[in-house]
Amino acid sequence: MTSELVEKLKSGLKGNITVISDDGVNDVVVLSDKKLIKSAAELIKGTHDILFMLTIVDRNPNFELNYLFSNYRNKNIIILRVNITQDDYKIDTVSKVFPSADWEEREAYDLFGIEFKGHPDLRRILLPEDWPGHPLRKDFEVTDDVRNWTGLDLKF
């Protein structure tokens, strides 16, 4: 059993994807180029309704982004995997296509420091606005500077 959506992605993106699994229920595809993320999201939008999770794996120094889409009608999900390399940690936002990506991307920016180009409101979501560093990166260390930072020199 093959998945219609994966076939659609294959033809729509001119074969720029690698298929890991296409059983129609749990599809996993890898995008070969991060510039295609927006057009891939637009293709997925027809079949799947929400981006319910965005996970990041730190494969030091590269990052692996997993976009998980699902829908309200059945149990099918699709995982779209994109790798971004160390030359720049930037990728296009999909929050115009899937509005739920807004906060997911802010969280990814907060904890991993990945910049989403074209995001409407890219601020930190969990940590204080002037916090130094991105704590979930592998190369982040909890030093005394981080421990003693209270942020209270700020005037409010």
């Binding site: 209270t150 942020g151 209270l152 409010f156």
Partner: peptide, 10 residues
């Protein structure tokens, strides 16, 4: 938390 510290002082 560090974000809450400012609210606590406030």
């Amino acid at each position: 938390t560090k974000k809450m510290a400012r609210r606590l002082i406030n």
